[in-house]
Amino acid sequence: MRIGVDARKLRDGGIGTYIRNLLTVFVMRPGGNEYVVFLLEDDLGSFAHPGSTAEEIRVQARKYSVAEHWHLARAARRAQVDLYHSPHYTLPLPLQCPAVVTVHDLIHVRFSRFFPAGAGIYARTIAGAAVRKARIVLVDSTHVRDDVQEMLGVSPDRVRVVPLGIAKEFSRRSTADTERFLKERSLPSAYILYVGARKKHKNLALLIDALERLPRPERLPLVLSGPPWRLGHPLAQRAQRAGVLSCIHFAGVLRNEEELALLYSGAALYVQPSLDEGFGLPPLEAMACGTPVLASSAGALKETLGDAAVLLPPSEPEVWSEAIVDLLRDSLRREGLIRKGIARSRAFTWDRTAELTMAAYREALQVV
Rank of each mutant, 00 (worst) to 15 (best):
residue 198 R to D: 10
residue 197 A to Q: 11
residue 235 L to V: 12
residue 205 A to K: 01
residue 218 E to V: 05
residue 193 L to V: 08
residue 197 A to W: 00
residue 227 P to G: 05
residue 219 R to C: 03
residue 196 G to Y: 08
residue 210 A to N: 12
residue 194 Y to P: 14
residue 201 H to W: 05
residue 199 K to G: 01
residue 194 Y to F: 15
residue 235 L to C: 11
residue 224 L to T: 14
residue 187 L to A: 11
residue 217 P to T: 00
residue 204 L to K: 04
residue 208 I to F: 03
residue 238 R to S: 13
residue 219 R to D: 03
residue 205 A to L: 01
residue 221 P to I: 02
residue 193 L to T: 06
residue 206 L to E: 01
residue 237 Q to G: 07
residue 225 S to M: 08
residue 207 L to R: 05
residue 212 E to L: 06
residue 231 L to E: 15
residue 225 S to F: 07
residue 231 L to D: 15
residue 198 R to F: 04
residue 187 L to H: 09
residue 191 Y to C: 12
residue 198 R to Q: 13
residue 223 V to H: 10
residue 223 V to E: 10
residue 210 A to I: 09
residue 213 R to Y: 00
residue 199 K to F: 00
residue 189 S to L: 12
residue 209 D to G: 08
residue 220 L to E: 07
residue 192 I to R: 10
residue 202 K to M: 00
residue 232 G to I: 02
residue 193 L to H: 04
residue 207 L to C: 12
residue 193 L to S: 07
residue 218 E to R: 14
residue 212 E to P: 04
residue 190 A to W: 01
residue 221 P to W: 01
residue 218 E to Y: 05
residue 205 A to Y: 00
residue 231 L to K: 15
residue 222 L to N: 14
residue 206 L to I: 06
residue 190 A to Q: 15
residue 201 H to V: 07
residue 192 I to G: 09
residue 195 V to N: 14
residue 238 R to F: 07
residue 204 L to M: 09
residue 206 L to M: 09
residue 208 I to E: 04
residue 216 R to A: 03
residue 224 L to F: 14
residue 202 K to S: 00
residue 189 S to D: 13
residue 194 Y to S: 13
residue 210 A to S: 15
residue 224 L to P: 15
residue 236 A to R: 14
residue 216 R to S: 05
residue 199 K to V: 00
residue 210 A to K: 11
residue 225 S to N: 13
residue 193 L to P: 11
residue 207 L to M: 13
residue 215 P to R: 06
residue 238 R to M: 14
residue 208 I to K: 04
residue 188 P to D: 04
residue 189 S to W: 01
residue 188 P to E: 03
residue 198 R to P: 15
residue 222 L to G: 13
residue 221 P to Q: 04
residue 233 H to M: 10
residue 234 P to N: 02
residue 214 L to T: 02
residue 197 A to V: 03
residue 232 G to H: 08
residue 194 Y to W: 11
residue 205 A to E: 05
residue 212 E to D: 13
residue 221 P to Y: 02
residue 226 G to M: 04
residue 197 A to R: 09
residue 229 W to G: 08
residue 205 A to I: 00
residue 190 A to L: 05
residue 212 E to M: 08
residue 221 P to L: 01
residue 229 W to Y: 01
residue 229 W to A: 03
residue 204 L to E: 04
residue 221 P to V: 03
residue 188 P to R: 02
residue 227 P to S: 11
residue 218 E to G: 02
residue 235 L to R: 07
residue 226 G to V: 07
residue 198 R to W: 04
residue 198 R to E: 08
residue 229 W to T: 08
residue 235 L to S: 11
residue 195 V to D: 15
residue 211 L to P: 10
residue 234 P to F: 00
residue 226 G to R: 09
